[in-house]
Design a binder for these strands. Structure first.
Lengths: 223, 223
DNA sequence: GCAAATATAATAGTATTACTATCATTAATG
DNA sequence: CATTAATGATAGTAATACTATTATATTTGC
């Protein structure tokens, strides 16, 4: 798996960036350290100036890659969804029983990323924390419809559609497979967040994982 | 119901504001018009200066009520959760069958607010749109643990706890009542958002409501 | 009814943000 | 080796997110 990904480029919609950051050393440093910095100080306090200082580069140079920090966030989230979709396809490939396949799929999309598997400049463990804490902000804006038209959210929509298909494969008569799929995806992130910050309103802790909750939920709903 | 609320003050944690906005004309204008303005231009573009212009008052005067727009958002979300809890308690009061009670509760917390019921300066229909689009931003910050310690999120946690209790009343053996409760609350807002902006990843539309989805889900999980 | 207290308005000022523009320097490529 | 492209340095702008100060209303307490 690691080898496969090393040769495979995760594709992010072109319009999100001005210059493809994966094609240059500076671009790759921008990605690597923006993930670290956003994780450290949060998206609100994150600025291109601070990032420039961290990577020993100039603010103006970073603007040649991304027109704003919002677009950088779109890039990182898009990258993550594409990466997760890749994991999903790879790890369920060839499974014939729909139940097993769905079970595995739920595992993949609800688990906390604990290992940096792809050995690139993008650290998925840290990126996952950004997804939990910041990804909602990528679409909770007034520009969402415009950006959606530009295709900025295709990766997110595609992985949910895949999950939906797996749900319908288990129970073709279930009436709300798409909403269930989107609820699993967003709900898992939310439960991870609650586990870290509001443990009184989640059952998830060190033993009970969001995966256990959603696995139980989905198979009760579909049976 | 309307009469009751007219005499009842929704309580928001004191530390959220500098001066209680409900106690003065200017304060009430701040609340009324901040809701309108945030709904119009979004939280990111919203500033106290613009609000001041809208209400014919001065930026500096608004700062005497709230130390930042983040705290204003905390106020509005807190107010909403307290208001919703009030609806929940009122509308399920005296119901004896746990199943009926839970069914009604799910209806209350998943429905889109369509009528301004309390006749105050706070328009709940518009506020609901703010909750859908902006409320996550109230806790997705680096300061969340600090603010949680200060009690800024008690209203949110309390309503989820109430819902959890109703779930457990229906099925005391269900293993994840708290996570189910928080998933319903947050998930309903998310489905409303998807309905408005990403209809390909939800089943909800004009006919199917988030309520239909969650009602079906919960009673399948608990039976 | 008036003094004192309080609330609001007006103005100014600061540091930072989120950029854009220009020009110099360095590195890559044909 | 000349041209082009990428990066860096510097400067500048409008807006943001405030704080501070002073002036002017308004309320309230006696």
């Amino acid at each position: 798996m690691e080898n496969l990904l090393a040769n495979l480029k995760i594709t992010v919609p072109e319009k999100i960036y001005i210059k493809d950051p994966e094609t240059s050393d500076l671009g790759r440093r921008i990605l690597e350290h923006s993930i670290q910095l956003i994780d450290e100080i949060g998206l609100e306090a994150f600025t291109f100036k601070k990032l420039g200082q961290k990577i020993g580069s100039n603010e103006s140079s970073i603007y040649r890659y991304f027109e704003s920090k919002h677009n950088l966030l779109l890039y990182l989230t898009s990258w993550y969804w594409a990466w997760l979709e890749y994991q999903l396809v790879l790890e369920t490939y060839g499974m014939s029983r729909p139940e097993d396949k769905l079970k595995r799929a739920i595992e993949i999309v609800t688990r906390r990323v604990k290992q940096d598997v792809s050995y690139t400049f993008i650290n998925e463990v840290i990126l996952y924390r950004i997804i939990v804490n910041e990804s909602s902000k990528s679409f909770l804006t007034k520009e969402v419809d415009l950006e959606n038209k530009e295709g900025y959210f295709v990766a997110y929509k595609r992985i949910i559609t895949r999950l939906k298909d797996m749900i319908s494969a288990v129970d073709p008569n279930y009436s709300h497979p798409t909403s269930l799929a989107s609820t699993i995806m967003e709900g898992a992130l939310h439960q991870q967040f609650l586990r870290d910050h509001f443990n009184s309103i989640t059952d998830c802790d060190k033993e009970i994982t969001p995966n256990a909750f959603f696995d139980n939920l989905v198979f009760k709903v579909l049976s």
